[in-house]
Computed example of a mutant assay.
Amino acid sequence: MIGIDSVAVGDELPPLQAPDVSRLTLALFAGASGDHNPMHVDLDEARSAGLPDVFAHGMLSMAYLGRLITDWVPQERLRTFRVRFAAITPVHARPTCTGRVTDISVVDGERRATVEIVVTLADGTITLSGDAVVGL
């Protein structure tokens, strides 16, 4: 674990291995988030759109990235959190969240770290990428 006082550019956060994306996870996340898009829970609907199966909500992967950051620093230290959705996460995939410190700066007297964050699947597909800024 990177100590807050000793953070340096290039430091990597401990990776977060999310659980396999199951149909149950998708149904529960749909209920929790209010996002009931059938592409996430209805196999027939996904197939009618030309997809082989349902896929995870992008915000589920973003939530895993949020956990990556807040496993490292308390939530109240999070200053910004941005992502770009790059690819879908298929059902049964196992996302891995990683982060690397890319900048250390001082803003309004507060030392801050910018962390590049990424969600990657086992085959190397990057599904989300972005950055977070945290107060140190």
Rank of each mutant, 00 (worst) to 15 (best):
I117N: 01
T120M: 10
P95V: 08
V91E: 11
W72P: 02
V115I: 15
R23Y: 06
V83M: 10
V9A: 10
S105I: 09
V91P: 00
I69R: 02
I104R: 02
F29W: 14
V41W: 08
G109L: 04
A56C: 11
T70L: 08
A113G: 02
T98H: 04
T120V: 13
G34L: 04
T127S: 12
L28C: 05
A30F: 08
M39C: 05
T98N: 04
D103S: 13
I117W: 05
D35E: 06
A27R: 12
L24F: 10
A8K: 15
L24M: 09
G66V: 08
Q75H: 03
Y64M: 15
V106I: 15
C97H: 12
R47P: 07
T125F: 13
A63V: 14
V7G: 05
D108H: 08
G34T: 04
F81R: 01
E116Y: 12
R67Y: 07
D123I: 07
E76D: 14
D108I: 01
G50M: 07
V107T: 15
S129F: 05
E116K: 14
V115M: 02
G3F: 00
T98G: 11
D108F: 09
A132Y: 00
Q17H: 12
R67P: 02
G58K: 09
A32D: 00
S33M: 13
I88L: 15
E110W: 07
G124C: 11
V7I: 14
F29V: 09
V107K: 14
V107F: 08
I2Q: 09
V21D: 02
R82S: 13
P52E: 15
A132E: 01
R84H: 13
P95R: 07
R112T: 11
V21P: 00
A27P: 00
T125D: 09
D71G: 08
F85D: 03
L28Q: 11
G31D: 05
T80Y: 06
S33V: 09
G34S: 05
D35H: 10
I69D: 03
A122N: 01
G99S: 05
S48G: 02
T89I: 14
Q17W: 01
Y64N: 13
V133Y: 08
D123Y: 12
H36P: 00
G124I: 07
V119P: 00
S22D: 05
Q75F: 14
C97L: 15
F85Q: 06
R82Q: 07
G34P: 04
G50K: 07
G34W: 01
R79P: 01
V115N: 02
E116F: 14
L13Y: 04
D71H: 13
F29G: 00
